[in-house]
Each structure stands twice: as C-alpha cells, then as structure tokens.
Design a binder for these strands. Structure first.
Lengths: 210, 210
DNA sequence: CATTAACCTGAACAAAAGCTCGGAAACACT
DNA sequence: AGTGTTTCCGAGCTTTTGTTCAGGTTAATG
C-alpha cells in the first residue's frame, strides 16, 4: 500500500478571508496567478515568490491569506472545479430531460462536456498529471459524485434507459467510460481521433446500448 | 497552450551502462530503490540522497550511472512498462485468437489486464498522478500504441467483430474506454464497483456491441 | 481627530536538495 | 606483480525555495 501522508484539509484552504475590497483583489490576484503559472509552466514552476510576482503582490501579502503553497493551488483548482461541475451537471440534467430524443440529448451533453473541459484545458491537463494532492481537494471528487448521482436518478426515472443485469453498475460504468473518453480526447488530443469522430462514434455506441 | 519545456530524451536515460557484475548490481539497486520510494512515498519523496540510501549505495555511485534524478525514475518506469506491455499485449493476442468464444476472450483479457496493473498498483498510481515527465517516457506511449495496433489488426482479420459506421474509430474508442475503466477500477478502487461487477458488466456491454 | 484593525512590504533566514569532485578501492588484463 | 580502467565513496558546494517578521501604510471606527 502507498503510505505517503495524505494532506490535511486545513492545509489546502485559505487561512483567512479578505475583509476589504482592496484585499479581495489581492486575494483573487494570488489565486489567479497560481492557476496561470500552473497552467502555463507546470507544477514545479509554481513557487510562492513567483506567484506573488505574477500577482503583482509582495510575498508577505501572499502569506497573509494562504498558509502555504499548496493552498493557493488548491483554492484555484477548487474554484475551477466548482464551475466545471456546475456547467457539466447542468448540461447532463438537460440531456436527461430530453428523454424523447436520446440522440440529441447525448450529443448535447457531450458537446457541453467537451466545451467545459476545453476552456480549462491547460490548467486541467497539468493538474491531472502533476498535482500530488489533487484528489485531496474535495471539489475534485464532487464532480464525479454529482454526475453519478444525476445519471442514476435519470435511470430510475425512465426505466427503459438501461437494460443490463446490473443497472446501477452499468450506468456507473457508462458514465465513467464516456467521461474518460471525452477527457482523454479533449485534454490529450490523440492523433487519429478528431472531436467530430469521437462524438459521432460515442453517440452511436450509446444508442446501441440504451 | 501550455509552454513548460518538454524534457529531452537524453535526460531521461542512464548515462552509461555498468560493465562489471558488481556495477550491474548497484545499477539495478538504484532503479529498484527509486521505484520503491516513488511507490511508497510519492514523487516529492524521491530525492537522490534518499534513493542512494535505500539502494545501499553512495550518492556518488548514483551519479556515475544516471545524469539526474528524473532518469532514475524514468528508467524504473520504462522497465515496468515494458513488462506490462508484454503481459497485456500477449493476453490481448490470445483473446483475439479466441474468435469463436467472445465471452471467454474478453473475460480472459480483462482479468489479465487487471492482474498486470494490480501487481504494479502502488507504483502506477503515483506515476500517473504525480510524475511530471511521465509521457516523455517512450515506453509509456508504447503500451497504448501496441494495444491499438493489435486491436485494429484483430478487427481487420475477422470482419464481423465491429459493425459501426466508423470501424477504426469505434475500435479505438472501445479499446480506450475499456482500458480506462479497468485502470480506474484497479488503481483507484471506486467504492461502489467491485472488480467482479466491473468485469461482468463490461463483458455484457462488449458482447452487445460486437 | 485619534485609535484600532486590516493590509501590505521585502529583506533575510533556514532547510533542503541536486550535484561535483578528488581520491581510494576493486577489478581486468598482461 | 604491475598497470590501467572501472567502480565507489561521501563531505561539501551551490542554488533554490518556503516561510517569517518587524515595521510601514491604508482603511474603518467612534
């Protein structure tokens, strides 16, 4: 078993909230700078002094609000993931609501996912591959939980959606697989598979299965 | 676009091969120690001095064979990935050969994949999540290329395997999705999905699609 | 206006980590 | 045994980086 110590939740959060508007601006600038350096230059390039410099703030101010380096990155990723979760789950709900036209629903959902991921592509690429404490950020886990929840709910409402021996497991799996495929394709752009071919084929497959 | 510099191939390789048997032992001990520390304590814990210590070798010896820290990790991962690729692609070939019994073939292949991954679970988990230059290691890319190659070849030989509008893309996708699902399940053990349920459901899905 | 609280600054400290290098020991070969 | 080559050693140099702190500035408060 891997034993390297999990990071405590407190160490991944800001240590105090800004009270004045000026302070709110520096706070945001720090988070923004952290995300930007991470996305553009990778995890190793994210040093506290560099983040402060990019944010246009002194190193002291940085430690006024964040207890350590990790909390800056974690705050930025948490913020982004809240946005992604909101966008993706909203589109999944809409897709589920389009019961009558499964093709349109699936298509719509996949485009929404791809768009949400692509907009944060540089950041998510680095985050998924390099940030050691990524999965200690609660918002990171929330996305898949939320999607699962919506999917299972949708399955229960309209019985005819999945007929497998194990409906729960197969819904879970379908969800996971489609998500993985989109993630892979959008973030890592395999040579032989354009976005168009991906979505077309995925839709076809899902229609055969549902 | 993310601009952080790609690592040169030379920086990820051993700088000279051991000539004597004694030297071969230290060389291997270093690689082994690197992999062990990485698997057990994470990327941040892999320091050159620590690797030397765990290997029971002096720091000087380490730099006799490896130009830098990354090359130690890269060598270890390359070695492991050669093994995994060999095991997984052998089992895929056998599965493809079982044309007559698709259920047995799929089942066999998935068990082989799961076993190959699980045996290196601790190492691969950390590698996939934390090693920044992971995909600059050629052996890392070889696996999916090899699997794709075998799968596409299998499809061409027995025409009746996949009937989709875009056979190549759908084979690619199926491959990717099954691989992702197994990887996820074996390495990150989702709470609600046991290995048994996964394989059962996956087999069922594949049979419906092929 | 006076006082307190919030905010900001940046030089400097301490720890850590990658890597070098001069020299000794083990080995191969004649 | 003698000679050159390979291997090994580890103290220490250099650089980097996370973080602190004492003091100054700005904003709120009464």
């Amino acid at each position: 078993m891997s034993t390297h110590s999990r990071i405590q939740a407190a160490e991944l959060q800001a240590k105090k909230a800004p009270r004045q508007v000026r302070a709110k601006a520096t706070f945001d600038a720090i988070i923004e700078a952290g995300a930007q350096v991470l996305a553009a230059e990778g995890y190793a390039a994210v040093t506290t002094n560099r983040v402060a410099e990019v944010a246009g703030v002194s190193i002291g101010s940085l430690y006024e609000y964040f207890p350590n380096k990790q909390s800056i990155i974690a705050s930025g990723l948490a913020r982004v993931m809240r946005e992604v979760t909101a966008e993706v789950s909203a589109s999944l709900r809409e897709a589920v609501a389009l019961e009558g036209q499964p093709r349109a629903g699936i298509d719509y959902w996949m485009r929404a996912m791809a768009a949400a991921l692509e907009r944060r592509g540089d950041l998510l690429r680095v985050a998924l591959r390099e940030v050691p404490f990524l999965w200690d950020i609660p918002e990171m886990r929330d996305l898949s939980d939320t999607l699962q929840h919506i999917a299972q709910e949708g399955r229960r409402k309209s019985q005819r959606v999945v007929h497998f021996d194990d409906p729960e497991a197969s819904t879970y799996l379908l969800m996971t697989m489609v998500w993985s495929a989109i993630l892979q394709t959008v973030l890592y752009r395999p040579a032989h598979l354009s976005r168009e071919r991906l979505t077309q084929t995925l839709v076809e497959m899902l229609l055969k299965l549902l």
